[in-house]
Design a protein around this nucleic acid. Sequence first.
DNA 1: GCCGTTTTCGGCCCGACTGTTTTCAGTCG
Length: 585
Amino acid sequence: MENVDIAKIFEEIADLLEIRGEKQDAFRVRSYRNAALIIGGFPESMRSIAERDEKELENIKGIGKSIHEKIVEILKTGKCKFHEELLKAMPPGVLELLMVSGVGPKKAQLLYKELGIKSVEELEKAAKEGKLRNLEHMGEKTEEKILKAVNELKSRSGRFRLSLALSYAEPLIAYLKKTPGVIEIEPAGSLRRWKDTIGDVDILVTSKKDAPVIDRFVKYPEIKEVIAKGETKSTVTLKNGLQVDVRVLDEKSFGAALQYFTGSKAHNIAIRDRAKKMGLKVSEYGVFREKPAPEGFNQGTEKWVAGRTEEDVYKAVGLKWIPPELRENTGEIEAAEKGNLPNLIELTDIKGDLHVHTNESDGIHTLEEMAAYAMQKNYEYIAITEHSKAVGIARGLDEERVLKQIKDIDRINKQLKGFRILKGIEVDIKADGSLDLKDDVLKRLDVVVGAVHSKFNMTQEEMTERLIKAMATGLVNIIAHPTGRIVGVREPYPVDSARLMNAAKEHGVILELNSYPDRLDLNDSYCRLAKDMGVMVAISTDSHNRLHMDNIRFGIHTARRGWLEKKDVLNTRPLTEVLKILKRQ
DNA sequence: GCCGTTTTCGGCCCGACTGTTTTCAGTCG
């Protein structure tokens, strides 16, 4: 039971309570949803916290007595009695109805109560038969909308990877920029927070009065369907399935809107809650001070106090500006309050790349070409780390070819000034935890990256043992693939992260954060855990061609999401320090 | 169900859009 599984149970409890719709449940629903948000985004697993000390769970803000007990119950038994009871009273299919856009708890309840609908299929059937239009607050249009949404749900492929969403959003932004009267245009939402997957794209625009922003937006040729179109807001679906929201704003409220639409939801709720306690109200239009109603009036007045820039908004609620990547309500607000925000790593801090392939194994460019591109990026060094022989499909190197490459690199290094190619390898960690190349050859290299390429279906314990054994050889500097996660394709292979990191610390091993936009080996929560446990991280690209080196920006933003600072990352250091840390000099 | 610079009870984030209504309920972000 990982955090996501626990979060899912609480999310379902919230849904079920909401559909049940008893008045006194409304705020319980919020509590469960809030708990799901917090647990889902929590940097450490509930399991390892509970193992250390169950009482610690109660210290987490948003988790009280009841939810604390339920977490312990779920960890112990794998399920939650309260959840099961709710499920018994409500056919599980009714929950599915919430996945249909336009159907929320109230409609789901109505559909179930009045028509006995308890699955998406039944909903579709009833809509086709024209049975929905007779229900309260529903008509023909609702019926149509639901049918459309059901089709949409059937064809929807889920969230988009960040890199893909960027490739769709950038041309659209360029298109909108050409609208006469546009002043400023900025993507917000999870795109701005650099989440590794994106549900939809939010674009904010400020413009002169009456600029035809929305009118031009809905004419974008890539649009499949306009879902909503108002004066200041419009929602569409693109042909590729991506949903895009555009909001047009006054300059005066641009900062407030940027803050609001950047999210995350959990962060915003916390910010608004905080503001309220200070007698302020935060909306996308600004920060307002509420004045009490004068004698004889029902309603007080509001005074606009901030909103032009994000800095102003945060300042108004007594906080330092918080980088978008941190806005998940996982401690950043408290840190901003105390002035303890991390000084996040920047792209320009990176001095080299420690995981690069050439055409000697499965890359496409030569040693010289890769080095030249790295120099162009103002790097001081790169490490050439080919696959080893066990990875036959990638033309992995055996001992003999490694020795030959060492000679090649020595030769090229002699011709280079102010730049050095490090001799390395991405050695395969075999199923039993042994390494794929002989010790004496590995010892001759500057850097050894260990990686798993086979038998991903091991149990968590077996996989953790395998990695720890490899670390214990004392020959591995950097461990790649500690989660093996491919965004949207494969969930992480199971590793006991706390144990892994303890072992990394013990053996002086560094964890690799792979910058492939869809192959995040270290995700943000692992980064944060690594930071908390004092384990160093290397942000690498695993480049197979020279342009892959540009992917470093995805790694940087993942690292920022994981609160990493310059000092936490190996390859922000100059070459001499790196070699010292790798204990090769 | 959670929380506390409104502290153990009484609050709990805010606004736009749609479709149904004729002043509003539901959904979404």
